[in-house]
């Protein structure tokens, strides 16, 4: 599977980021395994340790398996001033996980991230590709329940 994804891109170093995204997105657990890195290294002729350095540099990539839905709560100052720490506490309580962990039912992984560029709606979080703004503790509970129900 990894080989097929690589083959969609020209074997040049500048495609590393795109291939990493594509492979991570295609994986049901949204992560980059050692096996995937070996395949990419072989395809692009970029050493595995360099790829590992890139993966760990960017917070969007993960080297460990994650849940079906990835929650990224903004921890930048504007969101913090508008109460993102309360939102974080609420998320931890209703999900029963710490930052970086995945719920037992493998439905959610809780992460923190830097500014999402919608400070006007702080505090803000993303779940997968959707942005949720003007968060309150009640609103967060609603959003999570809704996604739980959907899955």
């Amino acid at each position: 599977m990894y080989k097929e994804i690589c083959a969609k891109y020209a074997p040049t170093k500048d495609n590393l980021i795109y291939i990493l995204h594509d492979i991570q997105d295609s994986h049901p657990q949204h992560y980059l395994s050692a096996e995937a890195v070996t395949t990419i290294s072989d395809y692009l002729k970029v050493p595995e340790n360099h790829i590992y350095g890139v993966i760990t540099f960017y917070s969007m990539y993960s080297t460990s398996p994650r849940g079906k839905n990835i929650i990224r709560l903004c921890e930048s100052p504007p969101c913090y001033i508008k109460g993102s720490d309360n939102i974080l506490r609420k998320l931890k309580t209703i999900l029963g996980v710490e930052v970086g962990q995945t719920t037992k039912d493998e439905k959610f992984t809780l992460e923190l991230c830097a500014c999402l560029g919608v400070c006007g709606n702080a505090p803000v979080m993303m779940i997968n590709d959707d942005v949720y703004g003007d968060l309150s503790e009640e609103k967060v509970e609603e959003i999570i329940d809704k996604i739980r129900g959907r899955n």
């Binding site: 595995e48 340790n49 350095g53």
Partner: peptide
Amino acid sequence: VYALTNSDRGIGAEVTTAFGMGMAQSP
């Protein structure tokens, strides 16, 4: 040789091998 690399960043930045597997499990 491509054994050692930087990983992570900021206060978490460290020198390690790919996937932190240890020198004996690296090239």
